[in-house]
Design a binder for these strands. Structure first.
Lengths: 227, 227
DNA sequence: CCGCTTCTCGTCGGCGTGAGGCTATCGGGT
DNA sequence: ACCCGATAGCCTCACGCCGACGAGAAGCGG
């Protein structure tokens, strides 16, 4: 068995929507290289771990998302990165993973959710991994029901619309959006409760339905690409 | 830098359309493990190679596709596979790559293009990698112009339609298909030549245009899923 | 009670697509 | 020479989805 040996790591692109902005979880590095730079959370694959195991373990460790996030959230493999010079310590292959979570409080010190538009100069090639993750998330909202992964267990149509508007950075007509999502079978399950206390007519509360695909897809115009 | 060390390999899902069937390039293993089993072509990542370099090198080595294939074809990363027991020799992470090529002659002895429906029992976890590659290819035909990667440099609308029909295993109305693809700007560039010798009216020849995305997408009904 | 806000339903027109008719132009059989 | 089948390509029609927009429903605050 020829070929060089690699250390294999998993780096997470953990996205959420906070205050109508798409945010990514970053950690401040405490060691070299790139000491005190922002980086994606991640870690090395341990013995007897598959890649998804490592990703799930790191996700729980970094967010405490075992209770809330893992149920409503989403975790999928993104891509592999293995440029020979991507890590000055030696050959490291990193598998990017994409996680979508509802808005949760900032985790431990040294980690924070920051708006993706403000993020530059991450450690290693994490700018690239982040860009790939954001693009994947934007694309998946088109033809899947994954936008609900950004929402808490019960949410309104407006909550869901704000997710689309934050991720795509566009404005969507509330009336057409409502017709679209409520007429897709299995996307939204109505609950018997309504929200009170806000301004305007109290909205209906929904839960995620069993549908995963969106037929026909929700089309977006070419986005003002940036980040 | 903790964590185990991995050998990193690249395995190729090389697809083509031959005689109206979606076919995959397989090689017969000459060594253990899985000696004399069919497997996806692949090899280990060498020093100073990035993953895409390895994939391109292996693709040329296995198909001689430097001339024809690399120009018209397509090569993209698929996913990473690293189950702890996927290779009995030790920990091996394999990056799957998907290649789409026009129909080319069978390469060296011990390698052949076989219809994907007939393929079972590949070495390692290559059945899974193949299934992922086929599903990716099917999905990408919906919203990209990649179907043309299966065609020679000049092709007819019917050639292109037969690609869709072979990959999706459906029948498509020739007249609506023609309207769709010829009305998409930048998909097909007409040439001044026509084909003679066949039955019926001589068709127009086209080349690939600069467009890569298909807006709106070419929708397919839920496929009779099966490899 | 009135105005404002937000949610929800309805209407209208444009566009893309499925279904299908029709013509153009070849090869081959009689 | 003529007809016929086959393929390519154009056109029409109906239906459904979607964008633009009007209007009612149902809460809150003055």
């Amino acid at each position: 068995m020829r070929g060089n040996l690699f250390a294999v790591a998993v780096d997470l692109v953990v996205l959420t929507v906070r205050r109508d902005q798409l945010c990514v979880l970053l950690v401040r590095r405490g060691e070299r290289p790139f000491e005190s730079h922002w980086a994606l959370p991640g870690g090395f694959v341990q013995a007897d771990e598959d890649l998804g195991d490592t990703a799930a373990r790191e996700l729980v460790a970094q967010t405490g998302a075992a209770t809330q996030g893992a149920v409503e959230g989403h975790l999928e493999q993104l891509a592999g990165y293995a440029a020979p010079d991507r890590d000055p310590r030696g050959r490291v292959l990193s598998m990017g993973y994409l996680a979508l979570l509802p808005d949760i409080p900032d985790p431990e010190a040294g980690a924070a959710f920051l708006p993706v538009e403000d993020v530059y100069g991450l450690a290693f090639d994490h700018d690239r991994i982040l860009a790939d993750g954001v693009e994947r998330a934007r694309a998946k909202l088109e033809y899947t029901t994954l936008a609900a992964a950004f929402c808490p267990p019960e949410f309104t149509v407006t909550d869901l619309r704000r997710v689309y508007e934050a991720v795509w950075r566009v404005e969507i007509d509330p009336r057409n959006f409502q017709r679209k999502v409520t007429s897709t079978p299995g996307f939204l399950l109505p609950t018997s409760t309504r929200v009170t206390g806000g301004r305007g007519r109290p909205p209906q509360l929904f839960r995620r339905g069993p549908a995963t695909a969106l037929h026909p897809p929700m089309l977006r115009e070419p986005v003002p690409a940036h980040v």
